[in-house]
Simulated scan of single mutants.
Amino acid sequence: MDAQNFTWIPVGTTIPEDLIDVLLFDEKDGQWIGYYFRDTGHFIRAVDGAILKNISHWMPLPANPR
């Protein structure tokens, strides 16, 4: 069985790749699936396209089941 390391990554350390869905932690609104949009420098909530302004951490989503 493959084990994945699910560790929160501070946005001050690194940001996710452009336009790739990740799990985001917003200090005001909790956890969301979203992505980073490099052209604007914003984190975007995937469900409705809202800009998330209080993102402190992120982590990759797990791999799809086999």
Rank of each mutant, 00 (worst) to 15 (best):
G30Y: 09
G30W: 10
Y35V: 00
D39L: 12
A46I: 05
D48H: 09
W32S: 14
L52Y: 03
I33W: 02
G49P: 11
S56C: 03
T14N: 09
I20P: 04
D39C: 10
L61W: 08
D26N: 11
I55S: 03
Y35G: 00
W32A: 11
E27M: 15
G41Y: 14
M1I: 04
V47G: 04
T14E: 13
I15C: 09
M1N: 02
D48N: 15
L23E: 15
E17Q: 11
R45T: 06
A3P: 01
L23R: 14
L23K: 12
V22G: 04
L19F: 13
G34M: 11
D26Q: 07
K28Q: 03
A50T: 12
G49F: 10
I51S: 12
G34C: 07
L23C: 11
Y35S: 01
G34E: 06
F43V: 10
A3F: 10
G12R: 03
G30I: 05
R38E: 15
F25C: 02
D18V: 06
T14G: 01
L52E: 09
I33G: 02
I9R: 00
G12I: 01
Y35D: 05
D21S: 02
M59T: 05
W32K: 08
D26A: 07
T14K: 11
G34Q: 13
